[in-house]
Design a protein around this nucleic acid. Structure first.
Length: 641
RNA sequence: GCUGGCGUAGCUCAGUUGGCCAGAGCAGCUGCCUUGUAAGCAGCAGGUCGCGGGUUCGAGUCCCGCCGCCAGCUCCA
């Protein structure tokens, strides 16, 4: 048969040749690194005879596809270990995932940490045995017989899902030993000995088929790599990510805390965190003003009647706190969103097309009841502040308004040091309100805005909210993680529910379009993302303390205070440490607290009107004239614009 | 909400099978040192061992309930 290789060359192989034969004919190193092949785009086991002519690409171990296969095989090996060690256990599904794999089991007793250790040990034995992964194809009927004892496998075979076992009546399975076969589409590594590096990580409950009404299984997570080195690097990356964790850095840098007595998901901001937050909020107001928004303020409570009109009590009640009885029997609710208030402002007077677009903005504190298991530091809290805006405009204005909102969001994110964006455009779901032509206009104009702004985006078909289509913007942080932050949403629901109108030039009544937008999303969440992005080392304009001044000895305190005074007059946030400790000790404190700049003053500086000057991450420059230091610091602390 | 793990001074942690087990380092305070670029020395103070019940002659150590934290599942119109 004729095989075309990725470089375009064509080679002749005998019928029945396998991917391994192809790889070996190219080079022994390649054959050694190969884990599977792709034949005409379809993945095949390395040792499985190729079906005939076609293009063949060798999948090697250090690629995403290769690791995928290694991890999938690791999951099988883990299943074998579990079934060996726990006679009553049965297995459900075990796919590879980002950076690892898992397998779900039904067992009499949940796995203990000691069990996991034993499972890992048994896996090592299976790897040492170098068991082959033998592909077997069979009819569904035969498969049902083989897996009769395993109810989840039976369910999978009966509801055969092509993505799980392949098309048609034939299903495939992989046999490692006479005692262990797993239903699987493949491909797999040729033998268990090819699993070079793995680690089991944790146990967690997981619902069968992801449905919380179904049986809860025990899931074991693990990770597997092509080499010990790659595994170690991955574990190291996890440690690095842990060091950036805002829940750890927050208290360490004295930014915020979650006191037990407050309640879960409720934070208090300490002075340092409060200062950073103030910078974020100041910047939010600055940009909102620049982009033509007006500022409004609304209370934390409103009558339940308002939430009925808005529809929140119908579709959002489970995320709202219970009502409070007030005078006269009226019930009040704490707000989970700001939109109804802004709508009331719009509705407060008759609106003319001449007033539109009307752009209302508020840093509004909201409270949402989140299920206890989902709370996650500042990223998912029960009380938070949205940098929320609602824009009301005519149909003709929608396109330019959406583009303006998008440009605003992008500038906002760039100002905070993000420059890798991706967007999701979510379109009309099955259940929706509003008129289809309006949806289509909004979807089209959202897409046009994304294209005009040259933002890569994916269309999430049918993923829009019931009330309108939206754009969600994701940013990539310093270590490559994606975070969903900003959002721009069109809303057909509230203008209907509140019967919003404006008078058009023709003197006819029109219904305005409404655009919800949050640039940071939640200030708390955005702050948390910033902490992780910068690992707590904020850029100088955000840093709570911008300049730390350290005295060499007590006698330099007066000079240090004079320097501080001067820098404060230049608009900088300055802290003096004239404590009695050693210089190194005081410096260390400021460095570990991630101060962006530190000045040291001693005898020579007092005499010469200079400072020892150092910016974070740079070497010190002694004897820097004060005026020069001031200029450098002011420049370094400049707010983006 | 569910499954598993965890909860000892402000922080990081030690505390064997329940009985001199309430400890260490850092931080804090006081004193000495008067310091030139990442931890000077000494002393002092600090915890009803998350909270509430229970078992026991005796519980940080065992049991139950609650609260909180961590991972995952579910959720995040």
């Amino acid at each position: 048969m004729q095989i075309t290789l990725p470089d375009g060359s064509v080679r002749e192989y005998p019928d029945g040749a396998s991917g391994l034969d192809v790889a070996a004919s190219i080079g022994s190193r390649l054959a050694k690194a190969a884990v599977a092949v792709r034949h005409d785009g379809e993945m095949w086991d390395l040792t499985r005879p190729l079906p005939g002519d076609g293009t063949v690409e060798i999948i090697t171990d250090a690629t995403e596809d290769g690791r995928h296969i290694i991890r999938h095989s690791a999951a099988h090996i883990m299943a074998q270990a579990v079934l060996d060690l726990f006679p009553g256990a049965t297995f459900a599904i075990g796919p590879p995932i980002q950076d690892g794999f898992y397998y779900d089991f039904a067992v009499d007793e949940p796995f203990t940490p000691e069990d996991v250790e034993r499972i890992g040990d048994r896996m090592s034995e299976i790897v040492a045995e170098d068991q082959p992964f033998i592909r077997e194809e069979m009819s569904k009927a035969d498969a049902l017989e083989i897996f009769a004892r395993h109810r989840f496998k039976v369910e999978i075979i009966e509801n055969v899902d092509e993505s799980e076992v392949g098309a048609g009546d034939v299903v495939s399975a992989y046999r490692n030993t006479d005692a262990f076969t797993d239903l699987c589409r493949g491909p797999h590594i040729p033998s268990s000995g090819r699993l070079k590096a793995f680690a089991l990580q944790r146990v967690a409950g997981a619902y069968w088929r992801g449905d919380e009404h179904k049986e809860q299984l025990q899931r074991i997570y693990g990770t597997a790599w092509e080499s010990k080195k790659a595994l170690d690097e991955h574990l190291h990356r996890l440690e690095e990510a842990e060091k950036r964790d805002h829940r750890k850095l927050g208290p360490e840098l004295d930014l915020f805390s979650f006191p037990r007595d407050l309640g879960s998901g409720l934070a208090v901001w300490h002075p340092k965190g409060g200062m950073v937050r103030k910078q974020i909020e100041d910047h939010s107001r600055r940009l909102h003003e620049r982009f033509g928004f007006e500022f409004v303020v609304s209370p934390h409570l409103a009558k339940s009647h308002l939430w009925e009109t808005s529809g929140h009590l119908g579709y959002y009640a489970e995320n709202m706190y219970p009502g409070m009885e007030m005078d006269g029997g009226d019930e009040y609710r704490v707000k989970p969103m700001n939109c109804p208030f802004h709508v009331l402002i719009y509705k407060g007077s008759a609106r003319s097309y001449r007033e539109l677009p009307l752009r209302l903005s508020e840093l509004g504190g909201v409270y949402r009841y989140e299920r206890s298991g989902v709370i996650h530091g500042l990223l998912r809290a029960r009380g938070f502040t949205q940098d929320d805006s609602h824009t009301f405009c005519t149909p003709e204005q929608l396109g330019s308004e959406l583009l303006m909102h998008l440009e605003f969001v992008l500038q906002w994110l760039r100002d905070f040091g993000f420059d890798d964006f991706e967007a999701d455009l979510s379109t009309r779901p099955e259940k929706y309100v509003g008129e289809v032509p309006r949806w289509e206009q909004a979807e089209r104009e959202l897409a046009e805005a994304l294209e005009a702004a040259q933002i890569p985006y994916q269309v999430a078909e049918g993923e829009g909210a019931f009330y309108g289509p939206k754009i969600d913007i994701h940013v990539k942080d310093a270590i490559g993680r994606r975070w969903q932050v900003s959002t721009i949403q069109v809303d057909f629901n509230l203008p209907e529910r509140f019967d919003l109108e404006y008078t058009a030039a023709s003197n006819d009544k029109g219904r305005p379009f409404m655009i919800h937008s949050a640039k940071a999303g939640s200030i708390e969440r955005f702050f948390g993302v910033l902490v992780e992005h910068y690992a707590g080392a904020f850029p100088m304009w955000l840093a709570p303390v911008q300049v730390g001044i350290v005295t060499v000895a007590d006698r330099h305190e007066e000079y240090a205070d004079r320097v501080a005074e001067r820098l404060r007059n230049a608009g900088l946030r300055v802290e003096v440490d004239a404590g009695s400790g050693k210089l190194g000790e005081k410096l260390r404190r400021m460095i570990t607290q991630k101060y962006p700049s530190i000045l040291v003053v001693g005898d020579n500086d007092v005499e010469g009107g200079t400072v020892g000057f150092r910016l974070r991450g740079e070497d010190e420059r002694r004897g820097t004239p004060l005026a020069e230091a001031e200029q450098l610091l002011v420049e370094a602390a400049e707010v983006p614009s």
